[in-house]
Design a protein around this nucleic acid. Structure first.
Lengths: 121, 121
DNA sequence: CGGCATCCTAGCCGATACTG
DNA sequence: CAGTATCGGCTAGGATGCCG
């Protein structure tokens, strides 16, 4: 019983691919346009919903919530809600999420490097 | 003039996001279900088209070709075609592509680690 | 062998409006 | 403040068939 638990984006082919390619496993969790951006924003510490919205102005509320829910379902992000009026909800990286930070930094390095190389053709 | 050159998947919002989040830049190049898998296969060395197809049986030809073209356009993969009969085409990682290898390994590590944690809930 | 063209569908994603 | 709900366009991606 070494089954990989289902990600937020469930699909039989994806599951198969994940087993054969761990990179796909990662992609299913932090892929898409928004999830990695959100993680990036949370690296500096917990943020409220409205802070995230302000930090990522181009995202729609639908996508922000949807992405946050997926990240929460995949246990990369922790949602903590204070039941008060007005509501006070903060999102933060879980342990798994924090373990992604070196990866993000490596990606960022490669991106900078590659974009510079590509510019000068 | 430090403009980031357009990726194979062009979109004004993407471009903006790329500037704000280098991770998105990476995602645009190796995101999607197939591109990272293909890169993974090419780590071990150049492969012919048919070899790739056999190595990734679940991929359709359309997706294989499409992904390869994008990877080639983004200069991560080099296509070398011998004009003979029958045709002989090999794909290999470019310098940029090879610089992704540590990234892939880090991703793989995280995936293994995370999937094990998730399994035991 | 190594592709390209076409049709078709699921679901991603944006826009807009509403709620506890 | 922090979400939900609904409609609909767009496109990624699968199935199938043809080509040099």
């Amino acid at each position: 019983m070494t089954k990989i638990k289902e990600s937020s984006s469930t699909n039989i082919n994806k599951e198969l691919s994940e087993l054969k390619c761990p990179v796909t496993y990662v992609m299913n969790k932090i892929g898409g346009h928004w999830k990695s951006i959100i993680i990036f924003q949370l690296i500096t510490g917990p943020k409220r919903y409205s802070e995230l919205k302000r930090a990522i102005p181009v995202i729609t509320e639908k996508m922000l919530i949807q992405s946050l829910k997926q990240l929460e379902a995949d246990r990369l992000v922790i949602r903590k809600a204070e039941v008060v009026v007005p509501p006070f909800v903060t999102y933060s990286l879980s342990d798994s999420g924090r373990e992604l930070i070196p990866l993000m930094h490596l990606m960022a390095e490669w991106a900078i490097h590659d974009s510079q190389r590509t510019v000068r053709n």
